[in-house]
Design a protein around this nucleic acid. Structure first.
Length: 303
RNA sequence: CGCGAGGUAGAGCAGCUCGGAAGCUCGCCGGGCUCAUAACCCGGAGGUCACAGGUUCAAAUCCUGUCCUCGCAA
């Protein structure tokens, strides 16, 4: 069975890697265009392009898929697999061959682009992965199979995406085999219980210590790769990569609790402890190193 | 040429404006105190001040170029 793979970011790459590992015949990878990004606005190529080329897999990058239906007609494939491709697939393309999607949530819960972050933000203990038909709507296709995955307190976006991708890979492999031998079954989603996640804005990552410590730790966990939770201390913008809820300390809400060894901030409910953070222009540091060199000009957290 | 910050002991920083013997907080090694400690006290090792030129009697500090790291914006 010849597979055409659609996907761009890390989640997609892990799945692609696994498919190849399992010996599936991936005839090509379709991903988003190169874009100017980062310092100096240099053109950035998606990492998966490099990955695919190293393995001699053809790569297509199209700005608008709907303009390239004829190109897809020329590609010899039996089924398309999508994983975090990032854009809707036009009906004309879906009509060419069957298409299935890997989605990191227990659909119909958390349809949309940010299911993993949303689960972490909400402090969920359970999430999951679903394999379903790719439709023209947003993550609303019939489901072949899904499986729950536990979210541990120490999980963050980095660890969870890895877990979900690996589980997704297994489910995907099973589903592809069933489709291959004609035993695949699918059931429609329960529209009544459908929820949609919202896109992440940069301002969502601003920490708010008038909220509970736990909720802000969840923010750190959800955004640890991007856009990274942050707050202001005077003029300094500090990004927080890792944090936890600490035992209680005396202190004023929204202020840093003076402590030589630990970076603690009192919230309205609980103490927020920073374990890994970064100043503008600086490296990512563990709290101890940060405190060794940082000179506090204020203990009051800005907004 | 999008805007900006920075490269100083193993780590994190100060010193640079106004050139003139390398400092702070940790870590490490040794010793002391303590029932005890992430506590405290004493002592010690460890640095071509990113690299290359230039100015100067003298450069971490001023000038020029190179390399590297990072923040913002998109």
């Amino acid at each position: 069975m010849k597979i055409l793979f659609f996907g761009t970011p890390k989640f997609a790459e892990i799945i692609l890697d696994g498919l190849l590992e399992k010996g599936f015949d991936v005839v090509g990878v379709v991903c988003q265009n190169d874009k100017p990004a980062g310092r100096g606005n240099k053109i950035q190529t998606p990492h998966i392009v490099e990955f695919a080329k190293e393995r001699n897999i053809a790569v297509c990058q199209f700005e608008k898929l709907s303009l390239h239906i004829d190109d897809f007609k020329k590609i010899d494939y039996d089924i398309a697999v999508t994983a975090s491709y990032g854009k809707f697939l036009p009906k004309a393309l879906l009509d060419l061959h069957p298409c299935i999607n890997v989605h990191p949530s227990m659909l119909p819960k958390y349809r949309g682009a940010t299911p993993i972050q949303t689960a972490l933000l909400n402090g969920d203990n359970i999430t999951g992965v679903s394999i379903m038909e790719t439709g023209v709507g947003m993550d609303d296709g019939d489901i072949f199979v899904q499986k729950e995955v536990e979210i541990l307190p120490e999980d963050d976006y980095s660890t969870l995406i890895e877990k979900l991708a690996l589980v997704g890979l297994e489910l995907l492999a099973q589903t592809l085999e069933k489709i291959g031998n004609g035993t695949a079954k699918k059931v429609p989603q329960d529209e009544k219980n459908a929820t949609t996640v919202k896109l992440i804005q940069k301002e969502d990552a601003l920490l708010d210590f008038s909220k509970s410590a736990e909720s802000q730790v969840n923010k750190v966990r959800a955004f640890c790769e991007d856009p990274v939770a942050f707050f202001f201390l005077g003029d300094d913008r500090i990004k927080v990569y890792k944090a936890r809820v600490a035992e209680d300390f005396e202190g004023e809400d929204g202020q840093v609790i003076p402590n030589k060894k630990r970076f603690l901030i009192k919230t309205s409910n609980g103490v927020f402890e920073i374990l890994k953070c970064q100043m503008q222009g600086g490296k990512v540091l563990d709290a101890k190193s940060f405190l060794n060199g940082y000179r506090f000009k204020t203990l009051v957290v800005g907004v």
